[in-house]
């Protein structure tokens, strides 16, 4: 047997997911490859956000949920009983729909996670703050006001701060749940630009309702409908000639 280098950072295998008695995801199998941006699209309630939150065990926080199947991250099933979800979330960062910085200073927003993970050296922390903010292309805007409250920043800046905060944990994978849906077009463009840069270092999975955004920034696109992965293909393929009629109907607005 020929061994092919496995470029999958994380993949899901035959996953079913239940909220109580309701099956939110049905038999999902998907590979997320290194240094790729994968977009998850589909109408509201199709399960794309559920899948995203499945990848860093955020769904654990909701009572009465159940997972079947496997989510393999670096060779291990993250739903294995011996895996600590806290550890998983350190390795798989997340950015949310609405910018949600803590009501702390910009500096403390970034250092919050690393400190609680045991990083206490002041010089290391300062370096980390600069590195993370630079990666999130926010450094030049905030380097002189690091001690001011993050709440003072604009929405777009707050969201980039949230990205910097996630990056400070040095994750392998970055999950983004509609990260620009609350932002104006210019902030959105900045974040999209940022995502393109970040994929050189991270594996990014993004949920978006904006078709054009998925087209602009992603390499792979997965279309979900009623809890099923209808089509998973190269983005270019999806947006020129998708294999499935359902996908085409959805992205061209022929639904409902």
């Amino acid at each position: 047997m020929v061994t092919v280098e496995d470029t999958r950072v994380i993949y899901v295998k035959n996953v079913n997911f239940y909220y109580g008695g309701f099956r939110a995801l049905t038999d999902i199998t998907m590979d997320f490859e290194q240094n790729r941006v994968t977009a998850l699209i589909g109408p509201s309630g199709c399960g794309k956000s559920t899948l995203l939150r499945l990848l860093n065990r955020m769904n654990d926080l909701i009572d009465g949920t159940r997972v079947e199947g496997e989510v393999i991250f670096e060779g291990n099933n993250i739903y294995d009983a011996k895996v600590d979800p806290v550890d998983i979330r350190r390795r798989i960062g997340m950015v949310f729909q609405k910018p949600n910085p803590f009501p702390k200073s910009i500096y403390n927003n970034i250092t919050y996670g690393p400190r609680l993970a045991g990083l206490n050296n002041r010089i290391d922390l300062e370096a980390l703050v600069e590195r993370s903010l630079r990666q999130a292309v926010l450094w030049d805007e905030v380097k002189d006001i690091l001690n001011q409250s993050a709440m003072m920043l604009s929405g777009g800046q707050q969201q980039r701060l949230c990205i910097a905060r996630a990056l400070a944990m040095k994750p392998d994978v970055l999950l983004m749940d509609e990260p620009t849906s609350a932002l104006d077009p210019i902030s959105t463009a900045k974040i999209e630009e940022l995502i393109q840069d970040l994929k050189k270092l991270y594996t990014i999975i993004i949920v978006t309702h904006n078709m054009q955004q998925a087209a602009r920034i992603s390499d792979m696109t997965g279309f979900f409908y009623i809890g099923k992965l209808i089509e998973f293909n190269a983005t270019e393929k999806i947006f020129t000639k998708p294999d499935h009629k359902q996908t085409e109907d959805y992205i061209t607005g022929r639904f409902g």
């Binding site: 998983i88 979330r89 960062g93 910085p101 803590f102 905060r165």
Partner: peptide
């Protein structure tokens, strides 16, 4: 806000630390 809890937990901070560091102070 629930988003504070989510933000903290998503950074790999344990539940108790999230409550102690984020929820209680606020």
């Amino acid at each position: 806000p629930q988003t504070f809890r989510e933000a903290s937990l998503a950074l790999g901070v344990s539940k108790w630390q999230t409550i102690y560091r984020i929820v209680l102070p606020n």
